[in-house]
Design a protein around this nucleic acid. Structure first.
Lengths: 166, 166
DNA sequence: CAAAGATTTCAAAAAATATTGAAATTAATG
DNA sequence: CATTAATTTCAATATTTTTTGAAATCTTTG
């Protein structure tokens, strides 16, 4: 039996709003932010049922949202002796959270961007026969600039990961 | 009269795809990425009509997309003597592009986050009467952690803006 | 200043995304 | 091992976002 009150306190509401904004900036569903915010400010681990009742969201959203948060390692399963339900608590180390997010969500994008630029370069090399050489040089300059952006972005990631240390 | 070919070359298609992915990561509409990509790789400024014909998008999307890009200062209006239409070219300095984006799109979010945390702090102070002091201290620790995240993010922005220099 | 051209606006349609809840599955208990 | 509880899945629904194109507005030019 869960002893948590059914209504959200003003404090809880504010904290949840904070994270909902965050997840929306990151392009994640609102319910994911709600669940994370609720768990972040919860003094004890909550079951899926607690989450459903406090946030008034559906079973499906809760299950799907927790799956997302688990896959981001933003939430951890905690065993509560005597309860048959899984209980969840938030990962509160933002350093860890950011590092995981960068590694799982950002780095793959950057790598695919890098390989795409490589492909465009080869395309340009193949076009040497036929096309106007001056135009091709101009294109190459533009693609090179893109390559430098991509490279800089890849350097940036570990810098960011390293910077959030507290 | 526009002399640009009507079909997109493979090179153009690849570059556009690159930027479409980018805008989708940033949460901007696909057409915005398409327009920017087309302009980025275009050897000469293009009119809205050129954009519509080459990308096969609607008038409304082109107008709205160009508005977005202008407001991000990712695109510049260029006057072409003898033509009545506005012509557009892409801002190709990624340093400028990133700096503008951080200032206009990211910083405001961070500032509103900061002030929201301030509000939660005051809420907690007001709650000193009535609530369990131990629980309130626990809450305060969680809110402080949030505050440190917010502070770190704000330090990060100028660092990133500074790092993309080429 | 009329006429044609270019651009913007905005309501409606289409597409993409998120949410719901009932049914299926999986796990725990007596 | 049957029963009940907990969780996941997924098709249907709702919501949000993007795109379209016709009408309105603004601009240029003869």
């Amino acid at each position: 039996m869960s002893q948590a009150t059914e209504t959200l306190s003003q404090l809880e509401t504010e904290v949840i709003t904070f994270f909902v904004r965050g997840t929306q900036v990151l392009g994640l569903p609102k319910t994911v932010g709600e669940i994370f915010g609720l768990l972040y400010i919860a003094p004890a681990a909550l079951s899926m049922d607690d989450i459903i009742r406090k946030l008034k969201i559906s079973l499906g959203s809760a299950s799907q949202g927790l799956r997302t948060l688990r896959s981001l390692r933003a939430v951890r399963v905690v065993y509560i002796p005597g309860s048959r339900r899984d209980h969840y608590e938030a990962e509160t180390e933002f350093r860890t959270l950011v590092a995981n997010f960068l590694r799982d969500e950002i780095t793959p994008h950057l790598e695919s961007g890098e390989s795409q630029i490589e492909r465009v370069r080869r395309l340009l090399d193949a076009a040497y026969d036929g096309g106007d050489p001056e135009l091709i040089e101009w294109y190459r300059a533009r693609i090179d600039k893109l390559g430098r952006l991509s490279g800089a972005a890849q350097h940036l990631v570990p810098m960011i990961a390293n910077f959030i240390k507290f």
